[in-house]
């Protein structure tokens, strides 16, 4: 299981790109942290979730 934004999810084996696409995130508005480190956007397609990972997807909304 992978902890994504505080919730346990059965997504081990998926890439970040696959996960973001499946969950409907807008790639232009997100920053992704895995185990406390930022994942560069260029690596979303090759970074695979493994059991025990802790992931934060920060998705920005407009206004400021």
């Amino acid at each position: 299981m992978v902890k994504v934004n505080g919730q346990e999810k059965d997504v081990a084996g998926k890439t970040i790109a696959e996960y973001l696409e499946a969950t409907g995130y807008d790639l232009k508005r997100v920053a992704v942290e895995k185990n406390g480190e930022i994942v560069p956007k260029a690596k979303y397609a090759e970074t695979v979730f493994t059991d025990g990972d802790t992931v934060e997807v920060v998705s920005f909304v407009g206004g400021g």
């Binding site: 232009k28 508005r29 997100v30 560069p40 920005f60 909304v61 407009g62 400021g64």
Partner: peptide
């Protein structure tokens, strides 16, 4: 910033 895409770019 105001724009969400600019927010994400700067953050990254």
């Amino acid at each position: 910033f105001d724009n969400p895409e600019c927010k994400a770019v700067l953050t990254n």
